[in-house]
Structures are given as structure tokens and as C-alpha cells.
Design a protein around this nucleic acid. Sequence first.
RNA 1: GGCCCCAUCGUCUAACGGUUAGGACGUCGGGUUUUCAUCCCGGAAAUAGGGGUUCGAUUCCCCUUGGGGUCACCA
Length: 481
Amino acid sequence: MSQPTTARTRFAPSPTGYLHVGAARTALFAWLVARQNNGSFVLRIEDTDQKRQVEGAEQHIIASLQALGLDYDEGPDKPSDYGPYRQSERLNQYKKWAESLLAAGRAYADPYTPRQINSFREQAQVERKPFLFRNHRPTNPPEWDGSMPLRFKSEPKPYKWHDEVMGSLSTGPEVIDDFIIIKSDGFPTYNFAHIIDDYEMAISHVIRGQEFIASVPNYLNLYEALKLSVPIMATMPPILGPDGKKKLSKRDGAKDLLDYLADGYLPEALVSFIATLGWNDGTTQELFTKRELIEKFSLKGIGKGGAVFDESRLRWVNGRFIRQIPLDELYQKAVGYLPEKASEQDDSYNKAVLGCLQERLKYFSEIVELSLFFYEDLPVDISLIANHKKLKKYETETLIKLLEKAHERLANLEPFNLETISSALNQLLADTEEKPVVLFSLIRIAITQAPASPGLAETISILGKTAVLRRINQQIEALKV
RNA sequence: GGCCCCAUCGUCUAACGGUUAGGACGUCGGGUUUUCAUCCCGGAAAUAGGGGUUCGAUUCCCCUUGGGGUCACCA
């Protein structure tokens, strides 16, 4: 088998929907193989099933690849020497190759109606045997006029082949069958088209999902009939849903890659997470930049078993990536996720808010919930005190007094900045002889009305004296009722 | 049902045939002059079962079990 020195890999989706995580991983790995060999990454659109076309799917997929930073060198919108890159635009190629098979006696017209084939199939099912079309191969097939499907005439035999991920694979002759290569609508099937295209586009590595592994022997049979050399093949194990059994599906949540991006997951984090779903470099490294992946990735490092998509781990990965980016960059990326009223504040205020959220943020769309109190007075929620493990033991009177003392101290504080606030709070601690958990929790609840928030002094300094004093008073009033 | 593939903590995974089976997420428990969703420390948690081979199997072989894929004029 010839091993091309420069890798040419492809991602070949059919435009029937959005790009989901599993396809994104396949695309990522193909991209990595191309990039680490200084090769080419090709996007080919497999639109041979007219019925399943989805309007806009191609654009959606392209947008997803771009968002992840998986740039391709050739594709429908990037014409190059091996185009066109949509299968619907390559019909004459498939026809040419099909006719050569026909001429060589390795293809024939399928004279049966779908109904007849169905009855063959049902019969096989009753007999609990796999359906093989070649058991019904017509002795005198009619001339192929394009109105009937064209079938490959197989030569059953056992196969043994190598898969970069799965290792050595083999099957017996019983899996080889006559499959349709040109449908009655004139379009090729995937089984035929991809082989022609991979050859004509000089693809070196075919990286795809495991749903195709059972068809590989048939492809090998076709490669032989066509006298084409076989590319390197790599089969990706499936990405599983939360139950750990079935393949990840739409039911399991938002699986459109663009949805994750819209929720405020960083492309870098998504790439790192998806790459480590089934792959790892043998060390304990958990997070990878794209550069590191290009350097370290290997198809051989991919596990053979399926991997469950664990969103909580994705959140953790994303949180780590968020913490790594400089505040200015974070601000640029996340400003749109701030609450509506953020537009009434200036950049420095909003940036300060994001700054103190950064270390605890997991994804951007939770920013509203985490930062709302920075932008508006939330209604006093008495349950925050009533349910607090320490505060609930205190008399309301005592709490009011503590708040009044805090109010007084902060009201007289000048200048009003992080440093002075911190020391004022410490003074307060000493004066009241209360534990921090009591005093600070009380003040924190008063000024945020939220179950969690950034550091108290920091929060106070961002909110400013006016808002803080107003909110403390609101809490006092609520307690008095 | 035939054929093919897969199998380490709940999850992602590491371990030239020799390790107290490691790391990470999650979880649980502590800790830090606030909360906790950050941070630090700690705990619980796995080689599916049975046979071989071997001085010694997570690792190699076989069987069983479990799971997945496929058997389309879908890809």
C-alpha cells in the first residue's frame, strides 16, 4: 500500500442537518492529521440524497467548522484543483466510472421493483439470515438505461485489513454483496461516490464513523474491481449519550455545535474537550491548545471503545479556558452576555464585573444570573437569611443592629475603594465581635440578594456607596416587617 | 438471527506481562477573615464473569455475559 508523504484528509458531511459533536470530532481529527503533516484538509459535501437535503445545512456546517477554527484548504466555497466539491456537481464522474464497471462486466442493471426486493428481505428475516442481494442476482439482467438502479457485481471473498484506530480487522466472504452504485434517479450512492471522490481528490486518510465499518469489505471489493489503491482508513468509535449505551442524540440536549458556542463555550475549550473524548497523549495532561494537539495528536492514540459525552466535564474545561484569557479579551467575548441593563453602564464598570466573575465562570450564558445584582436592586429575599445555616439562629433585632452598624461605617467611609472597604469590614468585625461567616454573609445577602457572589469587599467596591447603602436599608426595612 | 467491533472508578482515561491499578471530571468530607460555583487538603469509587498460558496477568488466548454497529435506490 502506498503511503502518501503528504496527508490529504477530508471531512465529508451530508447536508442533512447541523454539525453535531460526533461529526465535529471526526472533522477535528481529520483536520489535525492534515495540519500535522503540512497537508491539506478538504471539505466535500455529500449531497447525493435529494430527499434528505436540508436547506441551509451546508452553510450551517461551514459556519460550525469556521467557528471551531477548523479551516479547510479546499471546499465548495474554496475551489481548487480537485473540485467540484459537491457530489451533486460530479455526476458525470460517477457515470464514467460506473460505465467502465459495466463494460468490464462488474455492474448490472437491477430489474426488481422495490416491492420485490422487500419481499426477498422479509423472507431472509423470517429465515433469520442476513439479506444478500447476490442470492437473487438475475441471470439475464436487462440493458442499463438509467431508469433502473445499477448494481456492483461483487466477487465474494474474505478480507483482512488494517484500520489505524481499530487495528487488524477481518471478515469472511458472506458479508460481500452486490450493492447499488447508481440509484434510479441517476445519483450515486454514498458507497460508490465516496470511493470515486477519495481517489480523484487524492485523499490519503479516510477518517469516519464506525457505522461504515461493516461496509468496508464491500468497499475493498469495489476498490479491486476499479483497480484503485486503498487509502489509509481510520474508524472513529461512537460518542455516546448519558446512558453510556446509545449514540448521542438530539434528545440528550443541545448537540448542535453552534448552540454550545451560543451558550458561551469557547471554541478552544470545545476543541480541547472533543479531542480528549477518546484520545489522550498518554500523559496526565487534561487540557490541550490547538497547537499542542497538532504536535501531539495521533490516530493510534484513539481508544477503540465509545466515549460518553460528559457535559459537566465540558463545563470544567471551559471554565479553565475562561480563566486563562486576559480580561480585555474576556470582555470582548462576553460583553454581549451581560444583563440588558449593562448597556447603561460604562465599559470599566462592566469590565470590573466580568473581572470578578471570571474565576468562577463556566460558560457565558450564566453571566446574567451571576451578575444581575450588579445592575439592579433585586427584591429582598427573606429566605436567604431564613435558610442560612448560621443566620437563621439569630434574632431579627440582632441582624438589624448589625446591618445598621455596617451602614453607618460604610456611609462615613472616604475614600470608598477596595482597600478602605476591606479594612472597614475588618473593623466592623472587631467592633461587633461577630464571626465573619455571620457578619459578612448578612451584608452580602443584603447587597446582592443572591445565593452566591464574588468577594464581599470587591462586590461593594464595584457597586458603589450609594447602591450599597440603599440595599442595606432595604434589607433592614424588610426585616422590620 | 448472521457478520463485525468493543469492555479499567458513575464519567473521560493511564499503566514494556511485575504499580499500594495512576490522573482528571463529578461526588462526599474538611480548610481558608464572608457566601460558594473559585482555591487548597482529604475520602469513597474500577480491571464484567469463568477458564487457560505464565514464576507472575488490567495486559496474551478461549468461552460466557453485556453493549454497539451493520444486513437501504441513507449517509
